[in-house]
Design a protein around this nucleic acid. Structure first.
Length: 288
DNA sequence: CTTGGGTCCTGTGCGC
DNA sequence: TGCGCACAGGACCCAA
C-alpha cells in the first residue's frame, strides 16, 4: 500500500499529536508482524517522551528521549489511526479516555499522556517495527543501503544516470529498487514513467542522459503532488484521521487499463502488463 | 554481482 | 448463495 507520499502523510498526521508527548502505555497484541517485535518493546516505549518524527524512504522513525528510535514500516496494508481522547464518551460510558473497542488486526496501541490513542492496524502483516539507536539509525541494516530521498538534494540526474549505466533490468524494476532511489512503489513508478513518456519495458541502461534528466523532476513533481493530496487511497489507505487520500483521482496510468492515455496529443490506450510479478500500466503509443 | 521468482499474510471481487 | 482463483500499495531471500 503505502509508498513515500502515503508514509509522509502518516508522518505529518502523527507529528502534532506525538511530538513532546509521553507514551504512557504500549500494548502489543501479538508476537510479530513480518518479523518479531523487538525484545521488551513495550517496556522500552513506556514512559518515553517523543522528541521527533522523521521519515526515511517508506519508514517512519519516532525518536525517543531514551536515545532509541521506533522504526515503523507499513508494508502493504498497514495503517495508523489517531483516536483523540473523547471526554464526552468518558463521562457517559465511564471509560478512561472513551476510546472505541479495538478491532481485528489492531496489533499495537500507544496511549499518550494527553489521552490520545495511536493504533497500528495491518491485516496482511507485511509491515514491521524495530527499535534502534537514534544516533546511528542511518547505519542500521534496514536503512544503510537505501538510495537518496527523491525530494532531497542527493537525487539528481547524475546520480540516476550513473545508477542506470549498464543496467539490463527494465527501468520499471530499476525505479522500484530502493537502493537506486528511496520511496517509490508500483503506483508512482507507473505514474512517473507515463508522464515522462518512457516505456517501463526499456532497459534502464538504454536511456539517454536527456531522458534521465527529464525524469528526475517528473518523479519529484508526482511525489510532491501526491503528498499535497494526502496520498492515494485504493482500498486500505487512510490518513491518520481516517480520511481518504485523493491523489488516486489524478492517476494517469495506474489502474486505467483500457482507458485513453491522458498525455497531450496521444490517442493511445493504457495497457496492463506484468513485470517482476507486479502490474505495470502504461501507454505503448507514447511511452517509448 | 545481477536478476528473476517465490514467499510471507489477509481480504475482496469476480466468474462460474 | 457458494466456491475457487486472481490480485492487492512491499521487500526479503535464495537460486541461477
Amino acid at each position: 500500500m503505502p509508498e513515500l507520499p502515503e508514509v509522509e502523510t502518516v508522518r505529518r498526521g502523527l507529528e502534532p499529536v506525538l511530538t513532546g508527548q509521553i507514551i504512557e502505555t504500549a500494548i502489543i497484541r501479538r508476537p510479530n508482524l513480518r518479523w518479531p517485535f523487538p525484545e521488551r518493546m513495550a517496556e522500552r516505549l513506556q514512559g518515553q517522551r517523543v522528541e521527533l518524527l522523521r521519515r526515511r524512504s517508506k519508514y517512519i522513525l519516532v525518536d525517543l528521549a531514551s536515545g532509541e528510535s521506533l522504526l515503523v514500516h507499513l508494508g502493504m496494508s498497514g495503517r495508523i489511526l489517531i483516536h483523540a481522547a473523547d471526554t464526552k464518551r468518558t463521562q457517559t460510558v465511564h471509560l478512561l479516555h472513551g476510546h472505541p473497542p479495538l478491532e481485528k488486526h489492531d496489533h499495537v496501541v500507544l496511549d499518550l499522556g494527553s489521552g490520545t490513542r495511536i493504533v497500528y492496524n495491518d491485516p496482511r502483516r507485511f509491515g514491521g517495527m524495530e527499535l534502534l539507536d537514534t544516533a546511528t539509525s542511518e547505519q542500521h541494516k534496514l536503512l544503510r543501503d537505501i538510495g537518496p530521498e527523491p525530494l532531497g538534494n542527493a537525487f539528481h540526474t547524475d546520480h540516476l544516470a550513473s545508477r542506470f549505466e549498464g543496467k539490463k533490468s527494465p527501468i520499471k524494476t530499476a525505479l522500484l529498487d530502493q537502493k537506486i532511489v528511496a520511496g517509490l512503489g508500483n503506483i508512482y513508478v507507473c505514474e512517473a514513467l507515463n508522464r515522462a513518456r518512457i516505456s517501463p519495458l526499456r532497459h534502464a541502461g538504454t536511456l539517454c542522459y536527456e531522458q534521465v534528466s527529464a525524469l528526475v523532476p517528473i518523479i519529484c513533481d508526482v511525489l510532491s503532488s501526491a503528498i499535497e493530496a494526502g496520498g492515494s487511497s485504493l482500498k486500505d489507505f487512510r490518513q491518520t484521521d481516517g480520511d481518504l487520500g485523493y491523489f488516486q483521482h489524478s492517476f494517469r496510468a495506474y489502474g486505467r487499463e483500457g482507458d485513453r492515455c491522458l498525455n497531450a496529443g496521444c490517442a493511445g490506450d493504457i495497457e496492463r502488463v506484468v513485470q517482476a510479478g507486479r502490474s505495470t500500466f502504461y501507454c505503448p503509443q507514447c511511452q517509448r
